[in-house]
Design a protein around this nucleic acid. Structure first.
Length: 495
DNA sequence: TGACTGTGCGAACCTATCTA
DNA sequence: TAGATAGGTTCGCACAGTCA
């Protein structure tokens, strides 16, 4: 097993390995490669640019230095002093701009002259009038964009979707964000690539070369990092990403995050169209999704879907041995005897962990069913409970129900004994047969059981789930309905 | 044969408790 | 109070079985 290379180990080294920077090629070797026909035009330009940039910078510096010297000779001593004090700052401030403004023209002119003097038949006529390699050299008129944010976190093997579960659409837009639907660009091919997670922020400028340098390839010996729609063809400026998934997690990369990027497949198009990228996101092992906790959990979820209870972990095994297999089982046993189940889990379950488990479990959506414990030897009397055996009220012989919060004070001791008896004899609790249940104090149908949190309030799933947990919307129409009540004689308060 | 899926193993990580 | 320790969870890796 590769146990020596676990989490946190050698990440920097691995990151560095994947960010191997190509050494700057010597001009002579580049020229030789071109003459041999081993380099394509784009490669030539990419390899020569650093050298040419250096030459231009040196020439500009020499020119400025020469100018300063002649100025010095021509002005009086006092003026020379002033110039000496201010010029360095001026030069420092203007030099980068001078270089940036000069470099593209020099590169272009040098390339043309170089290729005129060194004709390479396979290369044909130089076609790149502008360089997309440097943002700012030529403003790219259009840009690609992902129409929506991605749904995160992503898992290996899962299809990449937008945060609203729709498909992600690639769009070609202009500077006013209008989709370009006509012209050759609107039906061009687009490549989808994976980028390093810390590559630029939204709105920042970058050049094509920087973008390409941030592209991540799969780890050695592994399948391609993404599979599916890696090559799209725009139709009227749009292309749907139907089926794209990651084959590997993002933990091995320095930033531990990826971004999806999109670039025009054709170099000519890249001179006109800026690349797109998404926000950075983590890609987790597929098992992370398989074992993911549910927010909120459902009554039928395995108990390990609750926070702090690991699948096949110690608590899961202990609960299973006690007959607690799902969230409903767990909540029922908690309602009946919190102290007992708490002790059964042992000291390893700290108070804080216990609070987390309970808080998560109580965000469950109840299904609205009623349960009844019929008191033995007391004809027609029973205890009305919800799914998780919280007492809702007490059933009277006339089939009406006194809600638990409306029990007269003088009856509370005996009702408390009924409740304890129900919990002690819980195996005889049965699901309600559907007869109408009428609130004895209002004459209205008994309200359907609602969720009661530890704080005594209905849970707010959006508040209780962690920030990164997906929001689950429960369709209330799918929940069982309480039978429509028949008008029956309302039990008036007779005591 | 390669991709996919399930699972065992073990290291990293988190949290609470213990102890000096 | 801070460091050590212990117990539990999470997650990456590797491997075996299955399937197209």
């Amino acid at each position: 097993m590769g146990g020596t290379e676990k989490r946190g180990l050698d990440r920097e080294e691995r990151g560095a390995a994947y960010h191997y920077q190509e050494k700057r090629p010597r001009l002579a070797s580049v020229i030789q490669a071109v003459m041999d026909g081993r380099l394509l035009l784009a490669e030539v330009q990419r390899k020569m640019e650093p050298t040419l940039r250096k030459i231009v910078r040196e020439e500009v510096q020499i020119g400025i230095a020469s100018m300063v010297e002649s100025l010095k000779r021509e002005v009086k001593h006092s003026l020379v002093c002033a110039v000496e004090n201010t010029l360095p700052r001026v030069v420092e401030a203007t030099l980068p701009r001078v270089v940036e403004a000069t470099l593209p023209r020099v590169v272009e002119a040098s390339m043309s002259e170089f290729l005129r003097n060194n004709p390479v038949p396979e290369l044909g006529t130089p076609r790149m009038a502008t360089s997309p390699r440097q943002e700012g050299s030529v403003e790219r008129r259009y840009r690609l964009r992902f129409n929506k944010r991605l749904k995160t976190p992503l898992f290996t093997g899962s299809t990449v979707l937008a945060d609203d579960d729709s498909q992600v659409v690639m769009e070609l837009v202009d500077e006013k964000n209008h989709v370009i639907s006509v012209g050759p660009e609107a039906s061009a091919k687009v490549d989808i690539v994976v980028l390093e997670g810390d590559f630029r922020r939204e709105g920042e400028r970058w050049g094509a070369e920087e973008f390409d340098a941030a592209v991540i390839k799969e780890r050695p010996g592994r399948r391609p990092l993404i599979t599916g729609d890696q090559s799209l063809t725009l139709r009227n400026g749009r292309a749907v990403i139907n089926d794209l998934s990651f084959t590997d997690n993002s933990s091995w990369i320095r930033s531990r995050k990826f971004q999806l990027g999109a670039r025009m497949a054709d170099d000519t198009m890249r001179a006109l169209v800026k690349e797109a990228k998404t926000e950075s996101f983590g890609v987790k092992d597929h098992r992370g999704e398989l074992y993911r906790k549910h927010y909120p959990p459902s009554l039928r979820d395995d108990v390990w879907r609750l926070e702090r209870i690991g699948k096949d972990g110690a608590f899961h095994k202990r609960l299973a041995s006690l007959g607690v297999h799902n969230v409903e089982d767990f909540l029922r046993v908690v309602t009946r005897d919190t102290d007992w189940i708490r002790k059964e889990l042992g000291n390893a379950m700290s108070n804080r962990m216990w609070e987390d488990v309970i808080a998560h479990a109580k965000t469950v959506i109840l299904n609205g069913k009623f349960y009844i414990y019929w008191l033995p030897g007391m004809e027609g009397r029973g205890v009305l409970l919800d799914n998780i055996y919280q007492v809702l009220g007490f059933i009277n012989p006339d089939n009406s129900v006194t809600p638990v919060d409306k029990v007269p004070d003088e009856e509370k001791p005996i009702q408390e004994r009924f409740k304890e008896q129900a919990y002690a004899d819980y195996e005889k609790i049965v699901e309600h047969d559907g007869r109408p249940l009428i609130d004895a104090t209002t004459g209205q149908a008994m309200p359907r059981p609602i969720n009661i949190t530890a704080a005594g309030k209905p849970p707010d799933a959006a508040q209780s789930r962690p920030a990164n947990a997906p929001e689950i919307v429960v369709d209330q129409r799918l929940l069982p309905m309480i039978p429509t009540p028949r008008p029956v004689s309302v039990r008036q308060s007779q005591r």
